[in-house]
Amino acid sequence: MSEFSDEEILDLFKDNPNYALSLLVKKYQKQVYWHVRRMVIDHDDANDVVQNIFIKIWRNINNFRNESRLYTWIYRIATNETLTFLKQKRTFLFIPMINVEKELASKIDDDHFFKGDEIQRKLQKAIIGLPKKQRLIFNMKYFENIKYEDMAEILGTSVGALKASYHLSVKKIEKYLKEN
């Protein structure tokens, strides 16, 4: 299947929204899924969040203006939905963040979808130990290889702050890996 450009998909939303939505989901589902999954760890949680993200995109696509790129707009919605999900989880269960981290770490041990080796398991646990936003920045840079300029557009932060945050998180993870 030849991939449609963002502009073509956006144009299709005017004439054939169902087809346009299916094209948009097919184009971005993997990026969005892994962006969310690395944050929430559990597949079922990630699945719920991903579905909500695409429903939100479908509902708001008419409000999308070409001031930003479709790709960064989708990522921004995905990031907000993921952070909201994590926040709601903490508020709803009345558990402090440290326990959410413990819960996520235990999911890595239990998750039957985790097939990585021991060092990858340790790496995931080290990432979970980072503060939520640092974790997000680390994942976007280390795994997804997103440019700092795009990350700045998605997260609404300066490039300098993102670089500093990534550098700090790399050092923390290296320390964790050395100690464990």
Partner: peptide, 9 residues
Amino acid sequence: INKSNGMHE
């Protein structure tokens, strides 16, 4: 470390 995150769908 291999950049694969070890998780699967």
